[in-house]
Nucleic acid binder design. Structure first.
Lengths: 248, 248
DNA sequence: TTTTCAATGTGTAAGATATACACAATAGTA
DNA sequence: TACTATTGTGTATATCTTACACATTGAAAA
């Protein structure tokens, strides 16, 4: 997969010429969630010789905010057309405390629009960019110190995700095509931060009529082989429109 | 009450000098809801020789977005410290289609951050500003054509309000201090857009333990006098923190 | 090969919550 | 004084949520 780049050749050119391409004072930050090894993960970027931060970017002059967020997401993950939703705009004038890039457009006050994405972990090949040295998944419980107010942004995304669990079967976006009921349950438990009853969970999930149990079972585990399930895409799509309600 | 003004003496000065005071490309629009005569209302502004629009404004360089929204709200209603919440940022580059103020900072592409407010109708004294000729309440079912994407913004606010009804006893903000159970029910019915059962509604509302029934009854109506209620402020505050759940 | 282990698959009863529903009381109006 | 439209109130049913235990099985260990 080709490495994707900013439309600039160097950090300096980006700082000097960014204002021609991007709207000033505005950025987009993405909280990209994945699920792996029974843990909820978030994709973070490390600035060269700097702290970790959320993958973000800027809004081009003739681009919608959604398009910007999709572009940024694609640059970091290689994915497009996955679940991506705006959740809040952060704009405390003190949020860049500590940032000192005098003069440059990037040194100005920024208001950032937060998006959260749900992606399938195994499909993602994290990509750093010109300004960053590393891009990798972190367990949400173990994220390091983040720059500016990015921890706050992440927490608000997590909170939003928790709420949206009720009207949105997030498993569809976060799990691989075929998955087991215990996996699905772990996902819910991780997002909600509390354990759920196995039998009741299964009952509720199946009662939504969105899951199809496959003939196969998942082998390789050390114990009894669980069934595999997949989402019924047709029902899933129409359920999203009607709006569904799950509660725990 | 003194008329509140923009920090400019004229429309022209505002257009020419606005960029010194405000962040470019960014605005805030408020969907201000009130409740009166059993109907949900929204406060709209009419541009001089132009269409109706949501009351909005711009973000000062050293002001948080919340502060901007509060300022704008105060300018239009005279109220402060009422319920005001950010709900979405709108930024389609085509949203200003039809707007033609060449050259001026205000003619640029704008991304607007939407807030919705819940206010007590009787407390509000609508104030037009330099740029507008009129400011008044409209029944949400009867709002006229609005400028740009303001109708979309209003609809999203309405949708958000509908959802937030579940974790937020909106009556506290929209109704006068003393109100009747039928009034409260009408409010819910209006927001939800569907009729509710009188007995079940009352049962649920009272079961929240947020209401205090007063000795007085409301007189003047043509029929049996209903009791008056008020919110139990203490319980209300603590319930908001714990998060409460109402469902219909 | 057998035993052990830890996880999976499954149903029912009790409790809580939501829904459906009807008649007596009353304040103002005619 | 009678009428009318609105308010106040309780119960039975259905639905949904919760709590809970044992037999099965695949792999690993003995």
């Amino acid at each position: 997969m080709a490495k994707r780049e900013l439309p600039f050749q160097s950090r300096q050119e980006f700082h000097e010429e960014g204002h021609r391409v991007f709207l000033p004072h505005l950025s987009v930050d993405c909280v990209i969630f994945g699920f792996h090894n029974d843990a909820l993960k978030v994709l973070l970027l490390k600035w060269k010789q700097g702290p970790w931060c959320l993958p973000g970017g800027f809004i081009k002059h003739r681009e919608s905010i959604d398009q910007s967020a999709n572009r940024i997401l694609k640059e970091r993950t290689g994915l497009d057309s996955i679940f991506l939703e705006q959740f809040y705009a952060f704009g405390d004038p003190a949020r860049e405390k500590g940032k000192r890039v005098k003069g440059a457009w990037i040194g100005k006050r920024f208001i950032t629009i937060g998006y959260y994405a749900l992606v399938e972990y195994s499909q993602v090949f994290p990509q750093p960019d010109l300004l960053s040295s590393e891009c990798r998944w972190w367990d949400v419980d173990e994220v390091p110190e983040l720059i500016y107010d990015h921890k706050e942004i992440m927490n608000k995304a997590l909170y939003t995700l928790r709420l949206s669990l009720n009207d949105h079967p997030v498993g569809y976006n976060l799990l691989p095509e075929k998955f087991t009921m215990p996996q699905l349950q772990k996902l819910y438990e991780t997002i909600l931060g509390e354990p759920l009853d196995r039998r009741n969970f299964q009952k509720q999930m199946l009662s939504l009529n969105l899951l199809i149990r496959l003939k196969e079972r998942k082998t390789g585990g050390a114990h009894k082989a669980p069934f595999l399930y997949k989402f019924d895409k047709k029902r899933y799509s129409s359920a999203l429109q009607t709006g569904l309600r799950i509660s725990f």
